[in-house]
C-alpha cells in the first residue's frame, strides 16, 4: 500500500471508503435510528466521538497490548467511550437520548469502530489514526443524516422537525419510518451510487 498523507487518510473515509456505502459496516445503526434527520445526526456524532477517541487510545497503546488480548482490550476501551457518550446524552439531551433508546449503548458493537481500531489504529501512529477515524466518523454521520432526511421527508413530511409538506398536501409514507423503509432507501442509495460509479469507470476507462 502506498503511503498516504494525513489529509488523504482523512478524506478516504468520507467517500471512497465510506463505512456504510462502501464497506457496508455499521449497518445496524444506519438502518435502525435513521427515521429522522436529527436522530441520524446525533447518532453519527456520537459514533464519531467514540471512533476518534478509541482510535486515538488504541494507537497510543498499540505497542503495549499483547496480540492475543488485543480484541478484548479494544472492546473495553470502546465500551468505556460509548458509556461516556451515553451518560453525556442522558444528562444534556434527555429527549434525544430517549429517542435513540438502546442504540447508543449498542455503538459498542458497531463494526465500523472495531474495524478502525483493528485494521488501522493498531498499526499506525497517532496522527494518521486520528485523521482516519475522524474521516470515517464524519462519512458515517453524513450518510446517516442523508438517510434520516430522506426518511423524515417522506415519512413525516418534515426535515429536522421543520414541516415542509403539510398532511393535506402530502400523505406521509408510513413505511419510510418503519424498518422496510430503511432497507429500501439504503439499498436504493447504494444501488444508485454503484451505478454511477460504474458508469464513470466505463467512460474514463474507454
Amino acid at each position: 500500500m502506498a503511503k498516504r498523507t494525513i489529509t488523504e487518510e482523512f478524506k478516504k473515509g468520507l467517500w471512497a471508503e465510506n463505512a456504510v456505502l462502501r464497506l457496508l459496516l455499521g449497518m445496524c445503526p444506519a438502518l435502525a435510528v435513521t427515521n429522522s434527520a436529527i436522530n441520524g445526526l446525533v447518532m453519527g456524532l456520537a459514533s464519531t466521538f467514540v471512533v476518534v477517541c478509541s482510535s486515538t487510545m488504541v494507537s497510543t497503546i498499540r505497542r503495549l497490548v499483547p496480540r492475543q488480548v488485543r480484541i478484548p482490550t479494544y472492546i473495553v476501551i470502546i465500551a468505556g467511550f460509548v458509556t461516556l457518550a451515553d451518560l453525556f446524552l442522558k444528562a444534556q439531551f434527555p429527549a434525544i437520548s430517549k429517542a435513540l433508546g438502546p442504540y447508543v449503548p449498542l455503538i459498542v458493537v458497531n463494526c465500523m469502530i472495531m474495524s478502525r481500531a483493528e485494521f488501522f489504529a493498531s498499526k499506525h501512529p497517532l496522527k494518521p489514526s486520528m485523521a482516519d477515524a475522524l474521516g470515517t466518523g464524519l462519512g458515517f454521520t453524513g450518510v446517516l443524516v442523508v438517510l434520516g432526511s430522506i426518511r423524515e421527508i417522506l415519512g413525516f413530511g418534515s426535515i429536522f422537525d421543520i414541516v415542509i409538506m403539510t398532511e393535506e398536501a402530502f400523505t406521509p409514507w408510513v413505511i419510510m419510518i418503519l424498518p422496510p423503509g430503511a432497507f429500501l432507501s439504503l439499498g436504493l442509495m447504494i444501488g444508485i451510487i454503484n451505478h454511477f460509479t460504474e458508469l464513470r469507470k466505463k467512460r474514463s476507462g474507454i
Binding site: 400523505t171 409514507w173 408510513v174 413505511i175 422496510p180
Partner: peptide, 9 residues
C-alpha cells in the same frame, strides 16, 4: 408496500 405506506387509506 401500500399496506405499510398508507395503513389508514
Amino acid at each position: 408496500f401500500l399496506q405499510a405506506t398508507y395503513p389508514v387509506l
